[in-house]
Each structure stands twice: as structure tokens, then as C-alpha cells.
């Protein structure tokens, strides 16, 4: 697996608050990876570090093999970024926005970008301030895709969009990625969206990576075990237990247990992606990997 983004013990501190702490993760090239976590977990910070808007406080990050701080040119040329705010100049027309993209990006795809916007029925002569939220999101995405990116970073791409606009946006995304083999890292709160478009998952919580891997493999590794009520302390002490729910007579455990058969008297069920994600988000201490030791990379 080649990594489009590789973070090693990556940490970022804002004054006295650690937004990310000892994050080590790999975002596989050619896949769509979801970045999931509660608000304030450090998702946006990670994306900003990946494109070099922020510099790490400790540790390192490589984007497409380059250090975004020391080698900003190749990174900025090849990485498209759609921030959550979808910043555009409100007084520019769509056409002027595209002109800016052409002027500032050496690998600019003029025909593709124009065609993409026209297909979506976006009037090129209209000022950005007069576009709807969904249209603005399309222009932002088009501007990022116009770079012909090898890596696309999307921060909450579907937030604040109506269901129709959201579906169009995600369709656009999947089509483009399928055609060009672009790597995508997108942060999202919407598990349904993640399930539809992503094949990899990274859960970060309180600035640390909690879980990372191929979504299908993760779902196979995790099971929901339902059986007679057990002592909550015993369940909590088991390192393979991600979350436990106890009712009067029953205990339901979400466990990470590779291929092991379920104990006698217990029912084993597959878990949905939503159950899996929620189990981790509810238990932020679970799965937090021990801080890795920094090894001098042999290049």
C-alpha cells in the first residue's frame, strides 16, 4: 500500500491546547478515506497540516511523499482542498473564479472544469454571492478538481447541503475519482455518506487516532456479542471490548476479535458501520494506540 498521506507522531498545539497528539496514520493512495470524529477532534487540523496551511508542532507529515512545509510547490500543485467554509471571493463571478484558478494552478483543466459546472447548470456569469449554497459547494469542488489533483482533501463536503445537492456532490466525487484514480480524504459526520462513497476509515478522537483501516475488513473484525448479563467490570477490563451495554438480563458487547468464535450461550452478529463508529466515538479511550517511537526513516 502506498500512502498518499503519511503522518508520524504528528502533533499540533494551539497555544496550550493539543489539537492533535502523536497521530500516526497512513491514507492509502487511490482510495476514498473517511475521517470521522467528534467536533474538535482535530480533523480540520489534520487536513490543514496535510496541505501545509499549518506547520506541525512535533512529528512529521508527508503528503504525496513531500514535506508540505519545506516543499510547498509540488504539494500545492497536486492537492485539491475544499475547506468546510468553502471560501470563494463573493464579488467574483464564477467565470472570474475559474480565471483565478487558471492563473494560480499550473496543471489547470479548463475544459473539464467549465464542462463540470455547465453540466450542473451553474451560470458562469453570476457572482458567487448570488449562488445558492449547493452551487457554491459545486464551484468550490470544481475549483479543487480543476487542479487535476492527485489528492483531494474535503472538509465536511456535504455539510449544510440539501439531500439532492449532497447526492449530486457525492456522485460527482465518486465519478471523478473512479475516472482519474484520485486519492480522497474527506471528513464527515454523516455515516450514511461515508458508507456510500468511502472504502477506508480513520476515526480520530481527542487528537488521537482511534481506529484506521479498510472499512470491510474493520466490519469483519468487529462483532456484536449478545448474551447473559455479565459483570460490567469484567467487560470493561477486556481489551478487546470496544463498548458494552448492560440491561437487566442481557449484555451486548461490541468486540474487536479477529476470527474468534463466540463463547457458548452468546449470539454473534455483524455490526453496521454506524454501530462501529458510534461505539468508538462513545469510548474515546478505546483503541488509542500507544505513542509510537520515532524511528529514523531510511529513505
Amino acid at each position: 500500500m502506498t500512502a498518499a498521506i503519511e503522518a508520524t507522531a504528528l502533533s499540533k498545539r494551539f497555544r496550550r491546547v493539543w489539537a492533535l497528539r502523536d497521530c500516526s496514520l497512513q491514507v492509502p493512495a487511490g482510495h476514498i478515506t473517511a475521517l470521522v470524529g467528534p467536533n474538535g477532534a482535530g480533523k480540520t487540523t489534520l487536513l490543514n497540516l496535510a496541505i501545509g496551511l499549518l506547520a506541525p508542532s512535533a512529528g512529521g507529515i508527508r503528503t504525496l511523499g513531500w514535506d508540505p512545509q519545506r516543499q510547498p510547490e509540488p504539494v500545492l500543485e497536486r492537492v485539491g482542498y475544499v475547506p468546510q467554509e468553502r471560501p470563494l471571493y463573493p464579488d467574483f463571478t464564477v467565470d472570474e473564479t475559474l480565471h483565478m484558478g487558471r492563473a494560480l494552478n499550473p496543471r489547470w483543466d479548463e475544459g473539464g472544469t467549465r464542462g463540470r459546472l455547465l453540466r450542473r447548470g451553474i451560470p458562469l456569469d453570476r457572482r458567487v454571492r448570488h449562488l445558492s449554497g449547493g452551487q457554491r459547494a459545486q464551484v468550490s469542488l470544481a475549483l479543487a478538481l480543476g487542479k487535476r489533483p492527485e489528492l483531494l482533501l474535503l472538509d465536511e463536503p456535504a455539510a449544510a447541503l440539501d439531500p439532492l445537492a449532497r447526492r449530486e456532490l457525492l456522485t460527482e466525487l465518486v465519478d471523478t475519482v473512479a475516472a482519474d484514480g484520485t486519492t480522497v480524504l474527506l471528513s464527515s459526520h454523516l455515516i450514511a455518506d461515508v458508507e456510500r462513497v468511502c472504502d477506508h476509515l480513520v476515526i480520530i478522537s481527542q487528537g488521537r487516532v482511534q481506529l484506521a483501516g479498510d472499512i470491510d475488513a474493520l466490519r469483519e473484525e468487529h462483532r456484536l456479542l449478545v448474551g447473559p448479563r455479565m459483570d460490567p467490570a469484567v467487560a470493561a477490563a477486556d481489551p478487546t471490548v470496544v463498548s458494552a451495554r448492560h440491561t437487566g438480563r442481557e449484555t451486548a458487547l461490541l468486540v474487536r476479535r479477529d476470527g474468534a468464535s463466540s463463547p457458548a450461550g452468546w449470539r454473534s452478529e455483524p455490526v453496521s458501520l454506524e454501530e462501529l463508529v458510534l461505539a468508538y466515538l462513545e469510548n474515546p479511550a478505546v483503541g488509542a494506540l500507544p505513542p509510537p517511537t520515532l524511528v529514523e526513516a531510511a529513505s
Binding site: 500545492l76 492537492v79 475547506p83 467554509e85 471560501p87 475549483l143 487542479k147
Partner: peptide
């Protein structure tokens, strides 16, 4: 002041 920097500084032209 706004978030224009998110746009300006993520284009192909480096901040420098």
C-alpha cells in the same frame, strides 16, 4: 480576516 486565505494559500502558487 475572513477565510480567503484558505482559498488563496491552497492554490498551486505557494504562499511565498
Amino acid at each position: 480576516e475572513g477565510n480567503g486565505y484558505l482559498l488563496a494559500w491552497t492554490q498551486g502558487v505557494p504562499r511565498r
